[in-house]
Amino acid sequence: MTETLPQPAALPPLPPLPMIELGPQAFAAVHALHGAVEEAATTAGLDPLLLELVRLRCSQLNGCVYCVGLHTDSARKAGERDDRLAELVVWRESGLFSPRERAALALAEAVTRLTDRAEGTRARRAAQAVLSEPEAAFVAWAATVVNTYNRIAVTSRPVATETP
């Protein structure tokens, strides 16, 4: 007969880390950076809906439930179709995304997951084939900014109960 050992008691959840409340100037600077990137991306000719897909994909990778909801809603309001939103998580296997979108998504993923340098090189080459240099740069900037927002949102929410 197998005996069940008692489990250690769960630690209480941690309260949110109030990054925004304790660093309003820093958050305002992130927000200003977002505005500057949006303006420059528009000037570079990037479609706002493509940038929304980039932000949504980065948020999916980062596991930021707040930002996934926000960017899904924003993409829908901008006219994105539900089938494309549903397949964004598997965009490489989907036939619903254009070469420009695929290149932008690959570049955004490479910016989000910095540990795979080869992935970054492949993504840069793919972007170079279909995006202008300014377009590629502002896709990377958009990914950088949303990754910052994701980290703020994820870090600022309550931390679930843990076991030691």
Rank of each mutant, 00 (worst) to 15 (best):
A28H: 07
A129R: 08
E38G: 09
A104S: 04
N147R: 08
A129L: 03
H71S: 06
A108I: 00
R124G: 12
R125Y: 07
E133N: 14
A9G: 10
V159W: 15
R117A: 03
L70A: 03
R57I: 09
L49R: 00
D83A: 07
A108H: 04
C67I: 02
P158T: 12
Q60T: 05
Q60H: 08
E21A: 13
I152T: 15
E21F: 02
E135G: 03
L11D: 01
A126N: 15
V65A: 06
T144Y: 01
T121H: 08
E38T: 06
L22V: 06
D82E: 12
A136V: 09
A32D: 00
E21D: 05
Q60V: 09
A123R: 01
R76V: 15
D83M: 13
T115I: 07
A29R: 07
L61E: 11
L49T: 00
E38S: 05
T121W: 08
R102S: 15
R76Y: 13
M19G: 07
L105S: 12
T115Q: 04
S132L: 07
G35E: 10
D82T: 02
V159Y: 12
W141M: 02
L131P: 13
P48L: 01
M19S: 09
T144Q: 01
R84C: 02
P15C: 06
N62D: 08
T148E: 07
Q60L: 10
A136E: 13
P24C: 14
L114E: 04
Q128T: 03
E162P: 01
L11Q: 11
E39T: 13
A160G: 03
P158S: 09
N62M: 10
C67V: 00
R117S: 11
L107Y: 00
P6I: 14
E101K: 05
A75W: 04
D47Y: 02
T2V: 13
S132P: 07
L107C: 00
T161K: 13
A143V: 12
D82Q: 14
L51C: 02
